[in-house]
């Protein structure tokens, strides 16, 4: 499994989500994307979208003024 990092810090809603979706089109099933986001809404919005469309949410962590959210491409 490979991991791609998308640094969306500084991007406002729905920028981080749209960057994630564009990134998912470029990776294989089973691969992971780590989204770095400083947008508070994305912390709830990204897991909500991931659950809705059928991917898998991995570990999330609050770091120094931003969050790391991991998503595994499932389909």
């Amino acid at each position: 499994m490979s991991t791609t990092t998308i640094d969306a810090r500084g991007a406002y809603c729905p920028g981080p989500l749209l960057e994630l979706i564009a990134g998912l089109k470029l990776i294989e099933i089973g691969d992971e994307i780590e989204v770095l986001s400083s947008d508070q809404g994305s912390i709830k919005d990204i897991p909500e979208w991931v659950a809705k469309v059928g991917h898998e949410i991995g570990e999330s962590a609050e770091l120094d003024g931003y969050w790391s959210i991991r998503i595994i491409k499932a389909k």
């Binding site: 500084g10 729905p14 749209l18 564009a22």
Partner: peptide
Amino acid sequence: EKGAPDAMELFAQGKMLG
């Protein structure tokens, strides 16, 4: 001032990704 996503880009991304 803060650089919110440009609405034209949002529409374009909606078309491209959805």
